[in-house]
Design a binder for these strands. Structure first.
Lengths: 229, 229
DNA sequence: GAAACCCAGATCGTATACAATCTGTGCTAG
DNA sequence: CTAGCACAGATTGTATACGATCTGGGTTTC
C-alpha cells in the first residue's frame, strides 16, 4: 500500500489546489500533520516544491508551520473563527450588492449550475463536496462583482471558514444553505442589489448561528488515506 | 563597491521585513527587479531563503513573480489601485469604530508617539519615512480593535497602497494627512466610535482623491543603491 | 538595410546533500 | 516506581549543484 500511483501534480500550485480542495470538503481535517516527505511521495515531487506549496498555504491561513516541527492544517481558535465571519460580514454583503448590479445572464447561468451541483452533492450524501461547492459559490460572487482583490480575500476567508466549520459545526440541522443560495441567485437574476445585500448579510449570520463557538474538537486521520483512499 | 557588509538578516522574515520597509518608504520603487542573487548578496544568505522571502511578498501582493524571469516589485494597475482603496473603505471605518470603543490610554499614548514621529519625519523632509509611519498608523488601529485577521488584511492593503501612491500620487499638495491622523487620535482619546468611523471614511476618500488614476509612471533604480546607499 | 536566426551569458526552477533541531524511547539514579 | 537524562531516529532548515528557460547581441540571409 506504499506506492499507489502518485497524484498527477507537478507544480506547487497543483499541490496547493489539491490540498486546498481536500481541506474544503473535509477529507483533510484541522490539526492533521502535513509531512514534507509524505506529501512529496503522494504527489511525486521533491520536498522543494512541497515546501513552496505548504508555505503558500500558510500565508493563506490554511496551514500553520511550526519551526523544526512541520506543517499542520490550521486549527482556528474560537477568536479567529469569530474574526473570520466578522470580516466576511464586512466584505460580502457589499460585494453581493455589486455583483447584483453587474450580473449578466451568463453569470446567472453559471451560478445556477453551481447550485445544481450543490443539490446533487447533497442528494448523494456528499456533505463535504457540497460544502466545498458552497464556498466556491461565495468566491464566484466576488468574481461577478469584478473585484479581484476582494475575491482573493474571500477565497482565504472561505478556506478558513471550512476549517471553522470542521471544528465548530453543530450538526443538529443538516446544511440547508442551498436555500439561501437560491434566494441570492434570484436577487442576481433580477439585478436587485438591495435584496442581494440583505440576503448575504442574513446568510452569513445564519452560518455563524449554527456554529458552537465554545468547545473545540479533535480528530486525527492518516493524510495518505484521506487523499488516496 | 561590491561587498559592503551585508545587512544583518538571517531569516526569511527578516528579509521580508527589510524589503517591505524599503518599499513602504519608497526607497524601493514599483517595477524594480529583485534578483535572487543580488538580494542574497545584500543580506548575506543563500538563494533558498531569498526565494522564501520573495514568494512570501508575492502572496502579499507586494512583489510579482514571473516564471523564469524573476521577481519584481509589483506595479498595481489603475484597476487594482481602485480596488485596494475600495476594500480599505469597507474594512477600515468599521475597524476604527471598534478601535475607538476599545482604545485605552496606553493605546492613545502609543498613537500619539506615532504621530509625533510622523511630524518629525515631515519636518526633516523625509517624506518616505513619514509615509511608512502613516501606513503603520492604520495597521495599529486594527491592532487596537483587537482584530488580527483584519490587521493582516489591512497590512497587505497598506503595502499595496504604498505602491499605488508611488505610482499615482500627484504631488500638488504635500501630504497633510497627519492632520487627519490627529483628528482620529482625538476620537480614540474620547472613545467616540461614530466620529472615528466618519473620520476614517473621510480620510480614505481624501487619499483616493489625491491620486491620479489615469496615467502610469515609470522609474528604475539599482536595488543595491536603494538599500545600502 | 531589415528581419530572422542562433548562440552565449545570465537567471530562475528543481533536486539532492548535509547540518540543525526535535521527539520519543530506554536507561539510570534516587 | 518515578523522574531525569541521554541517545537514536526522524523531520525540518539551508546550501549547493545542475538543468531549463529566457534575454540580448551578433551574424546571416533575403
Amino acid at each position: 500500500m506504499k506506492d499507489v500511483l502518485p497524484i498527477a501534480a507537478s507544480s506547487a500550485e497543483d499541490i496547493v489546489a489539491h490540498l486546498t480542495e481536500a481541506v474544503h470538503d473535509h477529507r483533510v481535517l484541522p490539526g492533521m500533520k502535513l509531512s514534507e516527505d509524505e506529501v512529496g511521495d503522494i504527489f511525486g515531487v521533491s520536498r522543494t516544491v512541497v515546501r513552496q506549496a505548504l508555505r503558500a498555504m500558510a500565508h493563506g491561513g490554511l496551514v500553520s508551520i511550526e519551526r523544526n516541527r512541520g506543517a499542520f492544517v490550521a486549527k482556528p481558535s474560537v477568536k479567529e473563527a469569530r474574526e473570520v465571519f466578522e470580516v466576511r460580514a464586512l466584505l460580502e454583503p457589499q460585494t453581493a450588492r455589486a455583483a447584483a448590479e453587474r450580473a449578466t445572464p451568463a453569470d446567472v447561468a453559471l451560478l445556477e449550475d453551481h447550485i445544481a451541483q450543490e443539490h446533487a452533492a447533497l442528494a448523494a450524501d456528499k456533505a463535504g463536496l457540497a460544502l466545498k461547492l458552497s464556498g466556491a459559490f461565495h468566491v464566484e460572487i466576488a468574481r461577478i462583482a469584478d473585484q479581484r482583490t476582494i475575491e482573493a480575500f474571500i477565497g482565504q476567508l472561505v478556506s478558513r471558514s471550512s476549517l471553522v466549520i470542521a471544528l465548530y459545526w453543530q450538526r443538529r440541522n443538516a446544511l440547508c444553505e442551498s436555500h439561501a443560495h437560491h434566494a441570492l441567485l434570484d436577487a442576481f437574476r433580477h439585478n436587485d442589489p438591495d435584496q442581494a445585500e440583505d440576503l448575504m448579510k442574513g446568510h452569513l449570520l445564519d452560518l455563524v448561528s449554527q456554529l458552537n463557538l465554545r468547545e473545540t474538537r479533535d480528530e486525527t486521520t492518516s493524510l495518505r488515506d484521506a487523499l488516496l483512499g
